[in-house]
Design a protein around this nucleic acid. Structure first.
Lengths: 160, 160
DNA sequence: CGCTTCGTTCATTATATTTTGAACAATCTG
DNA sequence: CAGATTGTTCAAAATATAATGAACGAAGCG
């Protein structure tokens, strides 16, 4: 049961590989989530590296990333010392985890930078100053909207 | 006026470099948009490569990308044969252009792949089939939501 | 026309990212 | 405790991505 991905598995994995790309995550992370998503049974590192033909290192690191935002959950398997995982299938949870883990820091950083920029406007020469102030204002508007889009997108996903 | 970025320019450019990263666009694209965004005057390729210290090739390619989704507009400058550009400052337009140009194709591709996957479910063995059908259903739900999120996000930006 | 200027293209080079695999630490097992 | 097994880490290798710059074609200009 381990080797050779079925046609269906390949298709599903490709979907998540593509998503991983969009999210700037390594290909292997997409592969791992994809195969777990479509697998009825939880899987351990050995299963995964055999199935996907990737190294143990990649597998371990990939699972670490997936765990970091809750895309994957540990599953206890009786009588087996190895760690097993199953894909988290509630989109809401994954998105929330990803937002907190990977997006929030960027937003915070951006806010800090905007504050710094505010202070630099006054130093501009008279002609440019007006224009620049307008642009910075605009930028701040965008930033604010980006910040409020996230909580909003979360609501967009069915609360169930 | 050409060489050496001011502190403010550096900060603004860094913001857009970061955004470019999130959108999987080359760093130089972020730099170009950033410097145009904060420049009161339209700029030509020479101005840009001098200011940002990047090659002519990068500048040309970067502008091509920015044009492709309307993040930058050509500006006619009397008595100068060169092409000048100014940053498009209406977020709505940029997002719409980016969505059409870079996101829509992915969604279309995804839809096609989902159709293909649908047909593969029946071939699964009895035990797995139930689970797999549930997962594919779920995936389809996600896909659908992703498709409707985009138009919705566009509305989220003030029509002005 | 011939000369110049301008923008694009694309093969090469440089850089950044990902994967690998061996070394290691931790935990179990008899 | 000695020997195995499991997961992690990290330097090195492989791969993917972006930047460079020279060659080119297409206008403008005298």
């Amino acid at each position: 049961m381990s080797p050779a991905l079925s046609e269906l598995e390949k298709e599903v994995v490709e979907i998540f590989v593509r998503i991983a790309g969009v999210l700037s995550l390594p290909r292997s992370v997409g592969e791992l989530y994809g195969i777990l998503f479509i697998s009825p049974e939880p899987m351990c590192i050995d299963d995964l590296m055999l199935k996907l033909k990737i190294s143990k290192g990649s597998t371990s690191q990939g699972l670490k990333i997936l765990r970091s935002f809750g895309a994957v959950n540990p599953v206890y398997v009786a009588g087996d010392r190895r760690d097993f995982y199953a894909a988290e299938a509630e989109l809401r949870k994954i998105v929330a985890g990803f937002a907190n883990e990977q997006i929030r820091p960027h937003l915070d950083n951006g806010k800090a930078r905007m504050a710094r920029i505010e202070g630099l406007i006054d130093a501009e020469e008279a002609g440019r100053k007006e224009f620049i102030a307008e642009r910075i204002d605009r930028l701040q508007g965008w930033q604010k909207r980006a910040g409020s889009l996230l909580p909003f997108a979360l609501n967009f996903i069915k609360p169930e």
